[in-house]
């Protein structure tokens, strides 16, 4: 397919770019993913809890929040926060802007996953918890959530893996994460095909590692369930 000289050049570029791209992944992509997923989950949990609390002001507030962040593109949300907010005097670093937007976006989607998981636990479980004297929050925490976690792990795992890949959008607001780094190197070496394949490879590795941890968690929370 190529001459020997071309092949050598490509191998040279790929091996030289390996560590810069890996570093961009370790420095930005991974932290961005882990931080926003953790914050997003916490936000999602409280949003779901507010939704099922039945307290109208909270219900309406959280419905409004989910409506906005599910109904608009992630890319547009990034641009509003990073490029738009400075015009009203709020200037954020690219990384901070990315964390805020991804957290709010993930929180909105994941809250629906958690809410659905909570609603999937039978009414009999709530009643049994009440019957031994538990309050609503004790029943939620001790009886319903541990079972809901198991239900929510597969969809949350999906959402986590899609987050790894969504972080590439942070390139558009100048975060030099994995994809941005690949783009920069492709621009000077004129080998976009091979560089973007290399970039894709890194995303694949990161996602695979995450899937592995998801599988481990599913086993742990599967206790008490007939196989």
């Amino acid at each position: 397919m190529f001459g020997e000289e071309r092949t050598e050049r490509i191998i040279g570029i790929l091996s030289e770019s390996f560590f810069p791209i890996l570093m961009a992944g370790l420095q930005y992509t991974i932290p961005l993913t882990l931080i926003t997923f953790t914050l997003g989950l916490i936000l999602a949990f409280f949003t779901a809890a507010a939704r099922i609390s039945g307290f109208m002001p909270l219900v309406l507030l959280t419905r409004f929040y989910v409506w906005i962040f599910r109904g608009t593109p992630l890319l547009v949300q990034l641009f509003i926060i990073f490029y738009g907010l400075p015009s009203v005097g709020v200037t954020l670093s690219p990384f901070a802007a990315a964390v805020i937007v991804f957290t709010l976006n993930k929180g909105a989607y994941s809250s629906e996953i958690i809410r659905a998981a909570i609603l999937s636990i039978s009414k009999g479980q709530w009643e049994a918890a009440y019957s031994i004297g538990m309050t609503k929050s004790q029943a939620l925490k001790r009886i319903v959530l541990p079972q809901a976690v198991r239900v929510s792990l597969p969809p949350l795992g999906n959402s986590f893996i899609s987050l790894v890949k969504d972080t590439s959008l942070a390139a558009t607001i100048t975060v030099t994460e994995l994809f941005q780094k690949g783009q920069q190197i492709a621009a000077v070496t004129y080998e976009p095909l091979w560089l973007y394949i290399e970039v894709a490879f890194f995303y694949l590795i990161f996602s695979t590692v995450l899937s592995y941890f998801q599988a481990r968690l599913e086993i742990r929370y599967g206790r008490g369930i007939a196989k």
């Binding site: 479980q125 049994a128 918890a129 009440y130 019957s131 004297g133 541990p146 079972q147 198991r150 369930i225």
Partner: peptide, 16 residues
């Protein structure tokens, strides 16, 4: 409610 204990038709044990 704490003065009562209830046994349910479908047991409703906590599966976890």
């Amino acid at each position: 409610r704490k003065q009562t204990g209830m046994v349910f038709q479908s047991y409703n044990l906590f599966p976890h």
